[in-house]
């Protein structure tokens, strides 16, 4: 571990004793933190492998006995679970890509230009962030009805994209603003137009922030429940959260089933997370200033 740490920090002065202590502390803290984070999650995994008769006994059992995969087979076979999975994937992917694209353009304008109304427009965006989504449900539903967006997946996307714009713009603008403007000015002197500077310079520079925005937006669209419930009537257009909620009954809930379905639903989010988190590693220093 010490060796790795030193390769990672080539200039680190050799004070082995304090280095080792620091590394030990670092790992101890991380492990304790990770254990706290993961225990409730493990409990959920264990419950998903437990038959209804043994679910949620107190005190909690972490190793299911007897274990069963019946919850997973039932989750996958009752309802059109795979169709709903595909619906969610389509909606979440398209919303994420379009939202990140549109909001990074807005962030670019805010970070690199001075223009009339800049402050006001930015404040309007901020104000949008403070409105609780529950409050917007009925007006948005009426809007969707007028625009014939009800009961369709593209209709849901419009609301998911709009809903994530402010957060993403705010996030990306902050990041772009903290990046020195010299490179941009240099490209401008070279005659590059605004689109080139956005696409070729700002976007690659903002990689860590774009990765963050992608992960957040994907998760938000993937998990969204109230709008999906309200806007979709045709069962063929349902998304996954609506299907998972249907596993909760009026008088009884099969928790193993709900947890199994939820765990299946977590997989795509983790994949998106794993794919995009590697952009954190190559930060500014290696990407732009040095390269």
């Amino acid at each position: 571990m010490t060796a790795q740490l030193q390769t990672a920090r080539p200039r680190g002065r050799a004070v082995p004793a304090s280095q080792t202590a620091a590394t030990t502390f670092r790992y101890a803290a991380l492990i304790v933190g990770a254990v706290v984070m993961i225990i409730p999650f493990l409990y959920m995994v264990s419950t998903s492998f437990t038959a209804q008769a043994y679910v949620l006994t107190l005190p909690p059992q972490f190793i299911p006995n007897p274990a069963t995969i019946a919850n997973y087979t039932q989750a996958l076979t009752t309802q059109d679970f795979l169709l709903y999975f595909a619906n969610s994937l389509i909606v979440a992917l398209a919303s994420t890509v379009l939202s990140v694209l549109i909001s990074s353009m807005m962030a670019f304008a805010f970070a690199r230009y001075d223009f009339a109304g800049k402050e006001i427009i930015f404040r309007v965006l901020l104000a949008g962030l403070t409105v609780p989504a529950v409050m917007l449900l009925i007006p948005q539903f009426l809007l969707a009805k007028d625009w014939h967006l009800l009961d369709s997946l593209p209709g849901l996307m419009v609301f998911y994209i709009a809903g994530s714009l402010a957060l993403n713009t705010f996030l990306l603008r902050g990041f772009l603003a903290s990046v020195p403007g010299e490179l941009d000015q240099a490209m401008q002197v070279d005659g590059a137009n605004a689109w080139t500077r956005y696409w070729r310079l700002a976007l690659p520079l903002a990689k860590p922030a774009i990765a963050t925005a992608t992960i957040f937006t994907f998760l938000a669209s993937w998990d969204e429940y109230p709008l999906a419930l309200t806007m979709i009537n045709n069962p063929d257009h349902r998304t996954l959260p609506v299907a998972i909620a249907a596993f909760q009954g009026q008088n009884a809930t099969q928790w193993g089933l709900v947890f199994a379905a939820s765990l299946i639903a977590i997989v795509p989010v983790i994949i998106v997370f794993l794919v995009f988190q590697r952009y954190f590693v190559q930060g500014l220093t290696s990407g732009a200033v040095k390269g």
Partner: peptide, 27 residues
């Protein structure tokens, strides 16, 4: 590299939209 990411992202969006359009259209 960033260009390839950009175009991959654009293609993904197009495919997803198309697929969404189809699924809503057919029903």
């Amino acid at each position: 590299r960033s260009l390839t990411i950009g175009s991959a992202v654009a293609v993904a969006a197009a495919v997803a939209l198309l697929a969404a359009g189809c699924s809503s259209g057919s029903n």
